[in-house]
């Protein structure tokens, strides 16, 4: 009994510990590969060099400005996309005619890669932050809209008829039935949009040269500061992880009821 249990726990292991060990291993390999001369240090500096560059950056006010520019563009873009996506989703989703009317348009506009709008962004806003915003909003908006549409479609007809039978006003039906049903989908949409928004913010800065981390990466690359370039890439990665973590935690906290309902068979 005891041996069996010990055996299985060794097999499963502690996922957090294993994850940390895996990451440490990767960093070690990245340290060794250039040091052993397997790859030119010029293109892939050892981990320690990148870490040193990262420390340098942390002491540079320009880095913090770039970081804040990226985060501001990300946050404003995401906020606009979420607001517009939720509003449009609730309106379109609850009016069947609108839904039918917009379905094909949405299917056409949604797959257009946001980066295809770069020329338009430059034309309209040059290298100002609005260029970044345009791309971020366009990419994130669809993520939210589509999820909200799924959410509204998921409204239980019995719950809805219950609200009607108790003579809820149209607004009360949205507020108390539609919205809570759609909320888990809204969260999924926001989580997806948050990641996409970061990708697009960095891309826009990188390609267009609007202020932010992406632009800093481009500058580091063109001035041959390869370790700095890597250090900045690492920062964007960390941002991505943090954003995802934040979104998931918020989701779990606010939707306790939904987690519990999901697994249950409804009568």
């Amino acid at each position: 009994m005891t041996t069996a249990r010990r055996g299985s726990s060794v097999q499963a292991g502690n996922p957090v510990l294993l994850g940390v060990a895996g990451l440490a291993g990767l960093l070690l390999i990245l340290e060794l590969v250039p040091r052993l001369g397997l790859v030119d240090e010029k293109y892939l500096p050892p981990t320690s060099t990148i870490a040193a560059a990262l420390a340098d950056e942390a002491g540079d006010p320009a880095f913090w400005t770039a970081l804040s520019d990226t985060l501001v563009a990300w946050a404003i873009g995401l906020a606009i996309a979420v607001g517009a996506g939720v509003l449009a989703g609730l309106v379109i989703g609850s009016v069947p005619v609108l839904r039918a009317l917009t379905a094909s348009t949405i299917e056409f506009l949604r797959p257009i890669p946001s980066v295809a709008l770069i020329p338009l962004a430059v034309l309209m806003f040059g290298t100002a932050i609005e260029s970044t915003l345009l791309l971020v909003v366009y990419a994130s908006f669809w993520q939210v809209l589509v999820q909200v549409l799924y959410g509204v479609a998921d409204v239980d007809p019995v719950a809805f008829e219950t609200a009607r039978s108790f003579r809820f006003s149209a607004w009360a039906r949205i507020r108390h039935v539609l919205w809570p049903t759609a909320l888990p989908y809204v969260f999924t949409g926001v989580r997806l949009a948050a990641s996409v928004a970061l990708v697009l913010a960095i891309t826009a800065e990188l390609v267009i040269g609007s202020p932010g981390l992406g632009q800093a990466i481009a500058v580091a690359q063109s001035s041959d500061a390869v370790p700095t370039m890597y250090a900045l890439v690492v920062v964007t990665g960390i941002l991505g992880v943090l954003i995802n973590l934040l979104a998931r935690t918020g989701e779990r906290r606010l939707l306790a009821w939904h987690q519990s309902v999901r697994g249950e068979v409804t009568v």
Partner: peptide, 20 residues
């Protein structure tokens, strides 16, 4: 339309109550 002073109890109680 639903008249005032009337209440309905549905068969599908699990779906008629609001889980949130």
């Amino acid at each position: 339309g639903p008249p005032p002073g009337m209440a309905v109890v549905f068969q599908e109680y699990g779906r008629s109550l609001f889980p949130w």
